[in-house]
Each structure stands twice: as C-alpha cells, then as structure tokens.
Design a protein around this nucleic acid. Structure first.
Lengths: 210, 210
DNA sequence: GCGTTTTCATGACATTTGTCATGAGTAATG
DNA sequence: CATTACTCATGACAAATGTCATGAAAACGC
C-alpha cells in the first residue's frame, strides 16, 4: 500500500519514557525493524525536547506522566517549534481527558501500553505515512465522556487536596482565604458528584482531568 | 566464571506482568539471549501459577501489582508448591515494605524497572546460579526503614479512608461505631507522623504497607 | 454600552474529622 | 498467671471540612 519503499532511508524515531527498562526494551525492538531507526532516547520531557531539536526525528514516541515536563506538554512544545516531528502518545491510561488533550496538543497517535509491541511499530509506520492512529477503545469513549467541568482554579486546588494538603496549607500557598479554598473544593465535589475532596480527586484523576 | 557452559540447555523463564507491551518486549529481548528461553507468559498471578506448574520454569520473573493475584502472593504460592522455580520480583516500586515481604515470600531477586534491560538477563543468570540479586539502592533502605507499625484493623481502615470513604461509611461497612473508626485513623495518623487521613494513606502506600 | 455568563472571593453556619482520656474484653507471649 | 498488645467502645472538645447566600470583577455576545 505504502508508496515509499522499505529499502529507502529508515524512519527516524525518538523515544521519551521515564521507565528505563521499558524505554530500553522498546528501543531495542524497534531498532530491529528494517525500516525504523531509534536515533535518541529521553527519560523526561525536557530532555526529549532538547534531543528532538538536535536529532530532528520523524516520529516522537512519548509517555504522558514523566518528570520535568509531561508528554502532553512535550507535544505542545513540538507543535509550536519548527521541527517536523509527529507525536505518538504511549501511555498506560485509557482516560478520555488525556486523549482529548493529546489531540489538542497536536498528537497524531494515541496508543495504550496494554497493546502488543507489534502495534507500536505499525503505528510508527502509519503515522509517518500521514495517518492518525487512535486506540479504538478510546476513540468511542472520548466523546460521550464529556468535557472537564472544572475551572483552572478548581483543578489546581483539587490536585493539592488530593495529595493530603489541608485547606489552610493550600490557601497559604495560593494566597487565598481559607474559606475560598473550601468553596472551590465544595464546587468541585458537587460538579463531580463526589462525597468529599478525596473522592473528588480520585474521580477527576480517573478521567484524566488532573 | 560460571561453571555451566553457555552451550548447555537454556534457562527456562516464565514472565508474569500485566502490561502487555512491557511483557512482550522483555520476553522478546530475553529470548534473544543464547542461554535463556522464555517458555511462557502470564498477565496475572493466577495464570502465572497455572503456567508455572505446566511448564516447570527455572525462573519466574514477576511484577508485584497485578490483577487476580499479586506477585508477592505468587511467590508464596510457588514456595509452598512442589516446583523448583526461583522468583525474581520486577517492580516500579522502591518500597522497603515490598522488599521485605518479597524476601519473606521466598523471592531470590528484587529488581527495579528503573534499571537497564541488560541487568534483567544478568539477574536471571545469577539467580539461576543460586545467588540472590537485590537492588543495591533498596538493600540499604530496607533495614533502617523499620517494620510496618500498623495493625490489621488500622491498615484496613486507612486503606478505605485513602479511597475517599467517610468515617460513617467505613463504620457501616465494618460494623463498627463511627468513633472507633475515627480512633483507628487517629492512631494511624499519629504512628505515621501524618497530618490527616489522606496524608497517612499516602505515606503508608509509599512504604508498601497498604 | 448593556445584559449575561463565568470566574473568583468572602463570611456565617452545620457537619465531619481528629484528639484525648478512659475502660472492658480477647488473644498471644513469656 | 502476669504482661503485653490488639480490638472495640464512649463522651467531650477542638479543628478541619463542606454548604450556602451573596457580591465584585472580567469576558462575551449583541
């Protein structure tokens, strides 16, 4: 089907993934493919951005949850940069909110770590050929799941609350009154149909809104 | 160094890991090693146990957090069974509590997914040769970290609290008075040096006690 | 510019959560 | 059998959390 012959120059790939063992294993396997060459590896988003401008890969495969800079932020950075790299998100999480944000950030692929390795190589080829590759399970979910109902402030506060910080601590950190913080949490709890702040944080996380 | 020549029969390995992509990648890479053969793969603890008795592997490499039956439970099962398989735990978590429980369950190796792939093959060889392989970072930590100070009830209640259940809900579910639940939580918070129930749950989890 | 909506803020009040003292029953340990 | 640790319970109080009514300020469409 593909117009480009496999004896042409290989597809240049960069892998960003914080878990060393998975990163190394995927790089080794992809590199065994005749038409793919792994030109660089990064353990976090910041490093990935630097290496992308240095090596000018065709495809960037990236995890979402990484230190320094997330895969979603990396995708945004690459879109607004001057490179030509297309981004494939590779993550554990089947969260509609993540997929939506990934597409907003210009990603061309969204693949789950639940899938067999073989699909990764195939996704690289498809995306390089100009197609989009979205995990079929999620493509359906993403729309009926609806928008994130939380405002920026609510998200920010809920996130801290979910980590065990008290209202007073959060208020001090954001220079708000304690009552205000409690109101935001109350709103968030209400919007999410939760029973308390912890429950709300759990729900929001499970949908990829935090 | 090794007395056993590499031209002998290969070391038979079973891999138990719920993330398909990682499992497949590791299996493929290990299988490339001349002296190692991956004879079976499992996506959860129960399946791993079944396959272990069917294929009689020399080494079982297993993740900890898996559905059905955890890697720690699997290690126990294998020890009390009649197989000869030695267990290597392969996990994301550098938690002293996990290491301790792994050793109690008879594991011969504890390796982190933070380490390069090459160490996994090497660990397989060492453990097969009768040695123990413990991640050096953890070996030190494990002892000064101390025992889990929580009682069974405290653990049970703290776990639910950490999921966002209210004292009243927990009390109803366990048929206790609400005050009692609050007392257990207060104890747990105190023992762990936390500031509230969420913080306590977070701390306990981070040490592998929940 | 004017209404409308959204976001952000405050204080008052009710409820839930955390602490402490106290005590009874039970199981395990030496 | 004395000691120790764990479990469960009360009640009283302090502190944190959740709810509600209310209003200021910015953003948007018309």
């Amino acid at each position: 089907m593909s117009i480009v012959s496999k004896s042409e120059k290989p597809i240049r790939v960069l892998i960003a993934e914080d878990q060393t063992m998975l990163r190394g294993a995927l790089a080794a396997l992809l590199d065994l493919e005749r038409d793919i060459a792994v030109v660089a590896q990064a353990a976090n988003g910041r490093e990935a951005l630097r290496l992308a401008s240095e090596f000018a890969p065709d495809i960037v495969i990236t995890d979402i949850e990484m230190p320094e800079r997330s895969g979603l932020e990396l995708a945004s950075d690459l879109k607004s940069g001057n490179g030509k790299a297309r981004v494939i998100i590779l993550t554990t999480f089947a969260r509609p909110g993540y997929l939506r944000r990934a597409l907003d950030a210009g990603a061309c692929g969204y693949l789950l770590k639940e899938r067999p390795v073989s699909e990764l190589a195939e996704a690289v080829r498809r995306v390089h050929a100009g197609l989009r590759v979205i995990d079929p399970t999620l493509a359906a979910d993403a729309w009926n799941a609806g928008e994130d109902p939380l405002s920026d402030r609510e998200r920010q506060i809920l996130n801290r609350a979910g980590e065990g910080h008290s209202s007073a601590e959060i208020a001090a950190h954001l220079r708000l009154s304690e009552g205000t913080v409690r109101n935001y949490l109350s709103d968030a709890i209400n919007k999410l149909g939760a029973t308390n702040r912890i429950d709300a944080a759990r729900i929001a996380r499970s949908r990829g809104w935090l």
